Computed example of a mutant assay.
Amino acid sequence: MSKLATRRALLLLNPKARRGQELIAPIVERLERGRLSVAVEKFEALPEIARDIVRLRQTADLVVVCGGDGSVSAAAMAVVESSLPMGIIPMGTANDLARTLDIPMDLLQAADVIAQGRLRQIDIGTVNGNAFFNVASIGLSTELAKGLDPTLKKRFGRLG
């Protein structure tokens, strides 16, 4: 990392996300070219993401979540508590929040958005202690993003 690095990024990777097994090195390199010093933490279960943010918040200037809507939601309350900005690398199935915010689905282009330091304030809601941003769902939306099961297609017709 060059001496020009001015911000420290805590990159949290969900290897179970749909694209979570893709190489992280090109993303880290892209962020580092944008003057970020990047520390990568993998997590195995969604509750770990909040614990990692709380545990490591003093070592970071921003949090980067590599995962889908579930990962982002799992990080949300800890991000709010830490007062750190959060970047999203959309590696999930639907990536609904990333799409709503016009974050590129291309991982390197999403890293460029973070490296450029673009900030946008958004609202957050909670239901039973669980955070949500632009939509609350009980799981059908993920099935829709994957492609409806033939029995669901027959039952619900053409959705989306």
Rank of each mutant, 00 (worst) to 15 (best):
I103P: 04
A98Q: 12
Q121P: 00
N134V: 00
G125N: 10
Q116C: 02
A136V: 13
D112C: 03
I88R: 09
N130H: 15
G87T: 06
N95L: 01
I103T: 03
I114W: 10
R120F: 01
R99D: 10
I122D: 14
R120K: 13
G92K: 12
I103V: 12
T126F: 02
D106W: 06
D123M: 00
L101T: 05
R118L: 08
D123W: 01
P85L: 06
G129L: 01
P90Q: 04
T126Y: 04
G139Y: 05
P104C: 03
L140N: 04
A98L: 11
N134A: 02
V113F: 06
F132K: 12
D123Y: 01
M91R: 14
G117E: 15
P104K: 04
L108C: 01
I114D: 04
D112W: 02
G92Y: 11
M91T: 02
Q116L: 07
I114F: 06
N130F: 08
V113D: 07
V135H: 12
I122E: 15
N134G: 10
V127T: 11
T93A: 05
V135M: 10
I103G: 03
G87N: 10
P85V: 02
A110Q: 09
D106F: 04
I103F: 03
D123A: 01
A94L: 13
L84H: 12
G87C: 05
I103Q: 08
A131S: 14
R99M: 06
F133M: 11
T100C: 03
L84E: 11
D102H: 08
L119E: 15
G117I: 12
N134W: 05
N128P: 05
M105G: 04
L108R: 05
Q121V: 01
A110F: 02
L107G: 01
V127S: 10
R120A: 06
S137K: 05
D102C: 03
F133N: 11
A110K: 09
F133H: 15
I124K: 00
A94Q: 15
P85D: 09
I88C: 04
N128M: 10
V135A: 08
G92C: 07
P90A: 00
M86S: 01
R118G: 05
M91N: 02
I138V: 09
P104D: 03
N130C: 11
D102S: 02
M91I: 00
A136Y: 09
A111Y: 11
A94W: 14
I89T: 13
V113A: 08
L107K: 08
G92E: 14
I138F: 12
Q121N: 11
G129F: 02
L101V: 01
Q116K: 13
G139S: 07
D96A: 09
A131Y: 15
M91A: 09
N134T: 01
T126N: 04
D123G: 10
A94T: 13
